[in-house]
C-alpha cells in the first residue's frame, strides 16, 4: 500500500505533569475534528519518511486515527492511503 505524508494543524493540550495531548485536528479546508480519546503514545516509525516520530493513536470522530509528531521539526502529520 502507498502512503502520502500530509502535514496538519493540531490544537494540543500541555499537561501539568508533562506531556502533550492533541485535542483537535484542523484539516486543510479549515474544518475541525475533535480528538475524542488518545489511546497510545509511543515512539514508532511511520510508513512515510520521518526520523523518530512519536505516534499518537487516537479516536477521531469515532474512528481510530494515527497522528504523528516530529519532535525535531515540531510538527504533526498524518498518513493518507493512496
Amino acid at each position: 500500500m502507498q502512503y502520502e505524508k500530509v502535514y496538519v494543524e493540531i490544537l494540543a493540550r500541555f499537561l501539568r505533569g508533562g506531556g502533550m495531548r492533541p485535542t483537535f485536528v484542523v484539516w486543510e479546508d479549515g474544518k475541525r475534528y475533535a480528538v475524542d480519546r488518545v489511546r497510545f503514545v509511543e515512539r514508532a516509525p511511520a510508513h512515510v519518511g520521518s526520523v523518530l516520530p512519536v505516534r499518537y493513536t487516537c479516536i477521531v470522530a469515532g474512528r481510530e486515527r494515527r497522528l504523528y509528531f516530529e519532535t525535531e521539526e515540531m510538527r504533526w502529520f498524518v498518513e493518507i492511503e493512496r
Binding site: 516509525p45 510508513h47 512515510v48 519518511g49 520521518s50 526520523v51 523518530l52
Partner: peptide, 8 residues
C-alpha cells in the same frame, strides 16, 4: 538505514 527512514 536512517536515510531509508527519511525516504522510504
Amino acid at each position: 538505514s536512517v536515510e531509508m527512514l527519511k525516504d522510504p
